[in-house]
Amino acid sequence: MQLKFFSEPFSVCKVEDYSQVNWEQPYIFTGQTDEEKSLVCPTRCVPVNTTAREDGWSAFRIEGELDFSLIGILAKISGLLADQGISIFALSTFNTDYILIKTNQAAAAKELLKKAGYGVV
Rank of each mutant, 00 (worst) to 15 (best):
Ser69Gln: 15
Ser69Asp: 15
Ser69Lys: 15
Leu70Met: 15
Ile71His: 09
Ile71Phe: 14
Gly72Cys: 09
Gly72Met: 08
Ile73Ala: 13
Ile73Arg: 11
Leu74Ser: 14
Ala75Ile: 10
Lys76Asp: 12
Lys76Ala: 14
Lys76Ile: 05
Lys76Phe: 03
Lys76Trp: 00
Lys76His: 13
Ile77Pro: 02
Ser78Phe: 08
Ser78Ile: 10
Ser78Cys: 15
Ser78Pro: 01
Ser78Arg: 07
Gly79Ser: 15
Gly79Gln: 12
Gly79Asp: 07
Leu80Tyr: 05
Leu80Arg: 13
Leu80Asn: 08
Leu80Pro: 01
Leu81Glu: 04
Leu81Asp: 06
Leu81Lys: 10
Ala82His: 10
Ala82Phe: 07
Ala82Pro: 00
Ala82Arg: 13
Ala82Gln: 12
Ala82Leu: 12
Gln84Ala: 15
Gln84Asn: 13
Gln84Met: 09
Gln84Leu: 05
Gly85His: 05
Gly85Ser: 10
Ile86Cys: 08
Ile86Ser: 06
Ile86Pro: 00
Ile86Val: 14
Ile86His: 07
Ile86Thr: 08
Ser87Glu: 11
Ser87Leu: 10
Ser87Val: 10
Ile88Ser: 11
Ile88Phe: 03
Ile88Arg: 03
Phe89Thr: 13
Phe89Ile: 07
Phe89Gly: 04
Phe89Glu: 02
Ala90Asp: 02
Leu91Ser: 03
Leu91Arg: 04
Leu91Gly: 01
Leu91Glu: 03
Ser92Pro: 01
Ser92Arg: 01
Thr93Pro: 00
Thr93Asp: 02
Thr93Met: 04
Phe94Asn: 00
Asn95Arg: 05
Asn95His: 08
Asn95Ser: 14
Asn95Gly: 03
Thr96Cys: 04
Thr96Glu: 03
Asp97Ile: 06
Asp97Cys: 07
Asp97Pro: 01
Tyr98Gly: 03
Tyr98Ile: 11
Ile99Lys: 04
Ile99Met: 09
Ile99His: 04
Leu100Lys: 04
Leu100Val: 06
Ile101Leu: 06
Ile101Cys: 01
Ile101Ser: 05
Ile101Thr: 03
Ile101Trp: 05
Ile101Asp: 05
Lys102Cys: 02
Lys102Pro: 00
Lys102Phe: 07
Thr103His: 02
Thr103Arg: 08
Thr103Gly: 05
Asn104Val: 14
Asn104Glu: 15
Gln105Phe: 12
Gln105Tyr: 11
Ala106Asp: 06
Ala106Glu: 05
Ala107Gln: 13
Ala107Arg: 08
Ala107Trp: 00
Ala107Asp: 14
Ala107Ile: 13
Ala107Pro: 00
Ala108Phe: 01
Ala108Ser: 13
Ala109Asn: 03
Ala109Trp: 03
